[in-house]
C-alpha cells in the first residue's frame, strides 16, 4: 500500500441544504453528492476524473483538498488521514482564484511565502523564475484584470508550481479559457509535468473534456451516479505529443470507448430529460 499517494475508502458526502442540514434523502437530483467512493492514486500518477455536470467530481477533489469533510469514509495521503487543507496539496481553480489587488508576481510570491521563508530578493527572483516557466516573462507587474483568462490561469499555475507541493489538484483548470488558449495551456502543463523527471508530481485533474483527459492522464476515472462507473488506463506512452497520439491506433479505440460511456443515453442524460418532462 505504500506506493499509494492518495487513498479514498468508502467516502460519502452530501452538501448541506439551505437550512444547513445534511438531508438524508437519496435524491439523485441533488448535485455533487458522492457515495461509497473508493480509489487510489499512485505516487507520480496523473489521474483525471471525468463525468457529466453534478456527478460529484469536483466534490471529490474538494474532499482530497480538505476543503470539505466527508460524512463517512476516510481519505489518506501517504497513509495519513486528511485533516483539513494542507500545504502538501496545491489547488488550481477554474476561475483562477488570483487576488485581483496583487500584481501577478505578488500573487506568486504570496503563495511561496505561505510554504517557506525566503528573503525579499530571493522571493522575487523565485516568483520571476516561475512566471518565466509558464511563459509570462515580463508580465509580473500587471494586475490580473490586465491579463487575459489564459494568462491569468498561467499565473495561477506558476503560483502552484512555485509552492513545490507533491500533489496538484486541478478543478477544471482550463474550463473557463478559450479554445486556443486551452490547447496552449494543456501543452504547457504536459511539458512541465514531463520535465520534472526526478520527482514526479501526483496530479488529480477534474475535467469534462474527454480529449483533455486522454492527452494528459495516465488513468481516467469516469464518474456517474455518485460513484466511479469505470476506471480506464490510458494506453498511450509518455512523453506525449498532441499530434503524435492522434496517429496511434490505441488512441482512437480508447476515445471511442470513452465517448460511448460519456454520451450513454441510458444513464444520466435520460434522467435529465425525465426531469424536464416533470417540470413541463
Amino acid at each position: 500500500m505504500s506506493s499509494d499517494k492518495i487513498r479514498l475508502e468508502n467516502v460519502s458526502f452530501r452538501y448541506p441544504d439551505e437550512a444547513g442540514k445534511k438531508n438524508d434523502k437519496k435524491d439523485a437530483a441533488v448535485r455533487g453528492q458522492i457515495e461509497n467512493l473508493s480509489f487510489t492514486v499512485k505516487e507520480g500518477e496523473f489521474v483525471s476524473i471525468i463525468g457529466g455536470s453534478g456527478c460529484g467530481k469536483s466534490t471529490t477533489l474538494s474532499l482530497i483538498a480538505g476543503l470539505n469533510k466527508p460524512d463517512s469514509g476516510k481519505l489518506y495521503i501517504d497513509d495519513k488521514e486528511i485533516d483539513g487543507p494542507g500545504k502538501d496539496r496545491g489547488v488550481v481553480f477554474q476561475h483562477y482564484a488570483l487576488f485581483p489587488w496583487m500584481r501577478a508576481r505578488r500573487n506568486v510570491e504570496f503563495g511561496i511565502r505561505q510554504v517557506r521563508k525566503l528573503e525579499r530578493k530571493e522571493l522575487r527572483a523565485t516568483a520571476e523564475r516561475y512566471l518565466d516557466i509558464v511563459g509570462l516573462k515580463g508580465e509580473g507587474n500587471k494586475y490580473p484584470y490586465q491579463l487575459s483568462g489564459g494568462m491569468q490561469q498561467r499565473v495561477s499555475i506558476a503560483r502552484l508550481l512555485a509552492m513545490q507541493t507533491d500533489i496538484l489538484l486541478m478543478d477544471e483548470p482550463f474550463g473557463a479559457v478559450d479554445a486556443k488558449n486551452r490547447v496552449i495551456l494543456q501543452d504547457l502543463l504536459l511539458r512541465l509535468l514531463e520535465k520534472d523527471t526526478e520527482k514526479k508530481k501526483t496530479v488529480v485533474f477534474v475535467t469534462h473534456d474527454i480529449d483533455e483527459a486522454i492527452l494528459l492522464s495516465d488513468r481516467i476515472l469516469f464518474m456517474k451516479g455518485r460513484k466511479i462507473y469505470r476506471e480506464l488506463t490510458v494506453p498511450l506512452p509518455h512523453p506525449r505529443d498532441r499530434e503524435l497520439i492522434v496517429t496511434s491506433k490505441h488512441y482512437h479505440e480508447f476515445r471511442k470507448e470513452l465517448f460511448a460511456l460519456f454520451y450513454d443515453l441510458d444513464g444520466e442524460d435520460r434522467y435529465e430529460n425525465k426531469n424536464i418532462e416533470y417540470f413541463i
Binding site: 483538498a65 480538505g66 476543503l67 487543507p85 489547488v91 481553480f93 487576488f99 503563495g111 505561505q114
Partner: peptide, 14 residues
C-alpha cells in the same frame, strides 16, 4: 467573499 478565493486561502492555511 468569492468562493474560489476563500477556498484558495483555506488551502494556504492563512
Amino acid at each position: 467573499l468569492d468562493k474560489e478565493l476563500y477556498d484558495y486561502t483555506r488551502t494556504l492555511k492563512l
